[in-house]
């Protein structure tokens, strides 16, 4: 049986479950790499150029860790996820980068996801993938349509239940944690930030907890124009929470030299200032050299400050 490996990095935190579902339903064995750890990180650091950002380096590590156990490593190429919502160039060039950096040590399976302008391209690339795997293209296509619909559905309603459960949890303060999903939900890269905050009796809101329509609506003034899906999410979450009395502070976790965050962070900062809401914003930058102690000190100081 053909085994497909899915690296636990980058897209995994948003789309991992649908791809697992997708391949399992098509009758393949799916192997997901382990949580990020020191070994995986070191693998990644070795094969990437210095300028590459931390999550991409970690992703390379995940791929290498799968090298002996799988036949193919699956890397989707997200070009755009919805109308006008594009992704970071690095996510779009990920399969190429991987192919070059890992130099033929792995067989890469790619699928191009372009939902904005050329849905045709998505279809073509899915068909190409089906040929590589030697299965019926129509079956793969219908399977893809099913999981993609499932993805959109969960995206729409997952948040509802969560937020209500959080508001019942009885903790009094809340912090909004912003950042790319593959940084804030990765326990190694984020140094267990969410747990650390929870241990201090603080609720943590992340972009996932706020429902989709509200986010899109509140991302004003860039509504209908912003083209990074993540930028949309983050702007929307920040402005939604800026209205919420329980949210006492915003923590923005960003990997060093992230191009998207540089701009999004500035928008958020300027807009919150313009709305006269006195909400403190902590920018935390991480890279592979960040020490955990220094990181903790900054968080503690921030928590003390917001009282």
């Amino acid at each position: 049986m053909v085994t497909i490996g899915i690296p636990k990095g980058m897209f995994f935190y948003e789309y991992g479950s649908i791809w697992e579902d997708f391949f399992e339903n098509l009758g393949f064995k799916v192997v997901v790499s382990k949580d990020t750890n020191r070994t995986i990180m070191d693998y990644g650091l070795k094969c990437c150029s210095n300028e590459t950002c931390l999550p991409v380096k970690a992703f390379h590590g995940h791929m290498l860790s799968l090298k002996d156990t799988v036949d193919y490593v699956f890397i989707p190429r997200y070009h755009s996820t919805r109308k006008n919502e594009y992704t970071c160039p690095k996510i779009c060039g990920l399969p190429d980068m991987a192919a070059v950096n890992l130099g033929g040590r792995l067989r890469i399976l790619e699928a191009k996801i372009n939902m904005d302008s050329q849905v045709k391209e998505t279809k073509e690339s899915i068909i190409r993938m089906a040929r590589t795997l030697k299965i019926e293209p129509s079956k793969v296509l219908s399977e893809f349509n099913r999981v993609w619909k499932k993805h959109l559905d969960t995206k729409m309603d997952q948040a509802e239940n969560k937020k209500s459960s959080k508001s019942r949890s009885g903790k009094k303060d809340a912090i909004l944690l912003l950042g790319h999903p593959y940084v804030i939900y990765d326990e190694y890269l984020s140094m267990r930030l969410i747990k650390k905050l929870n241990n201090r009796y603080i609720d943590v809101f992340t972009p996932k907890d706020i429902d989709y329509e509200t986010k899109r609506h509140n991302a004003f003034p860039y509504q209908g124009k912003t083209f990074w899906d993540i930028g949309f999410d983050l702007l929307g979450s920040a402005f939604t929470c800026a209205e919420d009395e329980r949210v006492k502070g915003i923590v923005y976790l960003t990997p060093f030299a992230c191009g998207l965050d540089a701009f999004i962070m500035e928008f958020i900062e300027l807009q919150i200032k313009a709305r006269n809401r006195n909400i403190p914003l902590l920018k935390l930058t991480v890279d592979e050299h960040t020490g955990e102690a220094g990181f903790d000190t900054r968080i503690e100081a921030f928590i003390d400050m917001i009282g």
Binding site: E51, T52, D96, M97
Partner: peptide, 12 residues
């Protein structure tokens, strides 16, 4: 510095 498309090109 931090130009995203060129970082990909650099690896290639």
């Amino acid at each position: 510095f931090t130009c995203m498309p060129e970082i990909i090109a650099q690896s290639v």
